[in-house]
């Protein structure tokens, strides 16, 4: 079955086609073709009729991102009591990929509701290190889920920590989870992820020490120059605070619609370069091999080699893409059934 057929089925609301297309995008295959055929201004058709709201949940290892995600799903579904009923929700859950074997144990959906519900879609994503706690091509996958018509898209980052701020560019709302006993108040003075948070959750509020952490965070935020993000004490175990968190979360402005998308453009350019580079490398492109050789032998400095590489990859436009297309077989360029 070709991606063209998949797209037709996708437009008819076929869940398996969505799943398969997500896999293609996750691997960076046919991304331009698929994304180019999506509705540029999708509206949530499965519930609210508004554009999708994309929310990231980030925070350290074991702070309860998956458990809270699970509770938020329950709260927005018709059976839930915590919010506007019947929002459809998709989850992209990132878990780390082994730097040694490339394998991954993806254990996030284990903590989320498992009974089949047509308004809930959960995909686990293996995430290489050094990517800012996000799986590759996450922005593409978000666009696909939007086009399918989900009202709420929850992105769970890898259990991360200080400095994983890149998620802010991709989503409307960043929720940072903290937990009791995470360190003294100096930890909150450090720059990084606390600065990009739109909402702060002191999670595991049923444990002792939650009030203390909340007080520390609040006092630190009070010193800041910008409007302090709201702080919630939440417990996925008892359900305390979930409804309040959800209300605020759904009332946040859709930041992605407001920004000028310049960052999107940069990201697209970066993705294009990455794709061209890996193609050239896989194809053992002679020019690239030569360049790498000269750099490894020390004939070029790293900076010289990098700008040489940019020039080389820029030249590959057109022919490179077209060659790749025909190499993919007859189904790759010609729409078929």
């Amino acid at each position: 079955m070709s991606w063209v057929t998949l797209l037709e089925r996708f437009r008819r609301g076929d869940r398996l086609a969505l799943s398969r297309l997500l896999s293609l995008l996750a691997r960076g295959e046919r991304s331009d073709e698929i994304l180019g055929r999506l509705d540029p201004t999708p509206r949530g058709t499965r519930g609210s009729g508004s554009p999708a709201r994309v929310v990231a949940l980030t925070g350290g290892v074991g702070v309860g991102k998956s458990s809270l995600t699970g509770k938020l799903i329950e709260a927005v579904r018709p059976a839930g009591t915590g919010g506007p009923p019947g929002l459809s929700v998709a989850v992209l859950a990132c878990d780390p990929q082994s730097p040694l074997s490339g394998g991954a144990l993806l254990g996030d959906r284990f903590r989320m509701p498992s009974q089949p519900d047509d308004g809930v879609f959960i995909r686990s994503l293996a995430t290489p290190g050094g990517q800012g706690a996000l799986a590759e091509h996450l922005d593409h996958m978000i666009r696909l889920l939007e086009a399918f018509g989900f009202d709420l898209i929850l992105v769970e980052t890898v259990g991360a920590g200080q400095g994983d701020t890149s998620v802010r560019d991709l989503v409307d709302v960043v929720v940072l989870l903290l937990q009791p006993e995470t360190g003294d108040d100096l930890q909150w003075e450090k720059a990084g992820v606390l600065e990009v948070a739109d909402l702060i959750v002191v999670h595991k509020a049923d444990l002792p020490g939650a009030a203390n952490v909340e007080a520390q965070v609040r006092s630190m935020l009070a010193l800041g120059g910008r409007d302090a993000p709201p702080v919630f004490r939440v417990s996925a175990r008892t359900g305390a605070g979930i409804a309040e968190l959800l209300d605020t979360l759904l009332a946040q402005p859709l930041r992605r619609k407001e920004c000028d998308r310049a960052d999107d453009l940069l990201r697209l350019a970066r993705d294009t370069l990455t794709t061209r580079f890996s193609r050239a490398r896989t194809a053992q492109d002679a020019e690239l091999q030569g360049l790498l050789g000269r750099w490894q032998r020390g004939e070029l400095s790293a900076a010289q080699a990098a700008s040489e590489l940019l020039r080389l990859l820029a030249q590959q436009q057109g022919s490179g893409v077209r060659d790749q297309g025909s190499a993919g077989g007859p189904s790759s360029l010609t729409p078929d059934s």
Binding site: L16, S23, G103, S114, Q115, P116, I122, R123
Partner: peptide, 24 residues
């Protein structure tokens, strides 16, 4: 080197099949 999605304990057949579908 494989990607393992651990769906865990006490799953119904319906839940397992849904996980297989959504995880491709």
């Amino acid at each position: 080197g494989m990607e393992v999605i651990y769906a865990g304990l006490w799953q119904t057949p319906e839940a397992v099949v849904r996980a297989v579908a959504d995880e491709d």
